[in-house]
Design a protein around this nucleic acid. Sequence first.
DNA 1: ATGACAAAGAGGCTTTGA
Length: 266
Amino acid sequence: MARKKTLKLATFNVNGIGARLAQLLDWLARERPDVVALQELKARDHAFPLSALEEAGYGAVWQGQSSWNGVAILGRGTTPVEVRRGLPGDPADKQSRYLEAAVHGIVVAAIYLPNGNPQPGPKFDYKLRWMARLARHAKSLVSIPGGAAIVGDFNVIPTDQDVYDAKAWRKDALIQPESREAYFKLLEQGWTDSLRHVHGEATVYTFWDYFRQHAQRDRGLRIDHLLVNPPLASRLAGAGVDRWVRLQEKASDHAPTWIELKAGPR
DNA sequence: ATGACAAAGAGGCTTTGA
């Protein structure tokens, strides 16, 4: 069997898979990503639209939840093999925010990191604890020889380059020094922030809120990230954001964000 | 400082999340 030249790995916070299914299918058909991490399904497990995705050529694993959260991993032409469901470190945490699977030869951790607002407060505390748990577990992924990626909605604005107006967001959980510190501490394990790596200092946004026509005016944030371990970093061939999805009517507030990986050694 | 949008449960609005 001929091997594809590149593997396209994408993450997309759909903000309700029920409300966004038609747009998701349209995007899959147009951009044909090989692996997709989805966040904010906002659907119970039984409401996950597996048959529609299968008709579109994708297998899936998912972790739903009523009303909030929910993550999934899609594989083009294959069903991802689930490795882990839920982030270790707190058995009492029942929120559907973490799913890990092997797909197309790599390990993908799909995350929906807690937003943490309002801060300060218990939700921000939960965010920081969740990030500490993520860092602990990520250590076991960073050295996977075949390649590993942690992708999803991190709800962290890494630097002021990643926000249209840092002052307007200064009180927000996404930009707090503690959130940023935890993010960079994670990177220090050996993870590469793919979008930043590929685009250098250029401005790249992945999210535009629904207020004041921010999408149309390109007043956004970069909070959806694709972190790759060293074996995958050496294969990085490109990265981008499908902003056209965000500019549609009734769009999610996030746009699909992706990387391309060269074929790995066999 | 403002404010959009979708889902859910109980209804034909209100609350919640972020």
